[in-house]
């Protein structure tokens, strides 16, 4: 998996490429935790090029959402492929996680 990090208007954007599973999720966890330690409050995860996610990936996203909520920040997910979105729906995560179609829309909400 490849993770590209960028910043726009005080929002940290993480663009994910490839597969997010139990083997690759520690890498994302480390990146997100590092950003939070450096003071990041609002984050966007761009899933446009993410081909796959398992419960290990969902765990990191849930943990990050909880951690950001504590500091009054927020996490928004965007540009999900249909298969990936279905995993969020089956897990019930779509009921409390904001999922929007584009990065621009995510940025406009933060």
């Amino acid at each position: 998996m490849e993770i590209i990090e960028s910043k726009q208007n005080e929002v940290n954007i993480f663009t994910l490429h490839g597969r997010l599973d139990s083997n690759t999720s520690p890498e994302l966890e480390k990146k997100l935790a590092g950003a939070m330690q450096s003071g990041a409050r609002n984050m966007v995860l761009d899933f446009e090029n993410l081909d796959y996610i398992s419960s290990a990936g969902l765990r990191i996203i849930l943990k990050t959402t909880k951690d950001l909520k504590r500091t009054e920040g927020a996490l928004i997910l965007c540009a999900m492929q249909d298969y990936v979105k279905e995993v969020f729906e089956i897990a019930g995560f779509d009921s409390f996680l904001p999922i929007v179609p584009t990065v621009d829309e995510a940025l406009s909400k933060l």
């Binding site: 398992s54 419960s55 290990a56 765990r59 849930l62 995993v87 089956i90 897990a91 019930g92 409390f96």
Partner: peptide, 18 residues
């Protein structure tokens, strides 16, 4: 079964649920 509400979500068993 259900992840919501967020505050008391138990993560264990999520994989098997899927």
């Amino acid at each position: 079964g259900s992840a919501a509400p967020l505050e008391n979500c138990k993560i264990g068993g999520l994989g098997l649920h899927i």
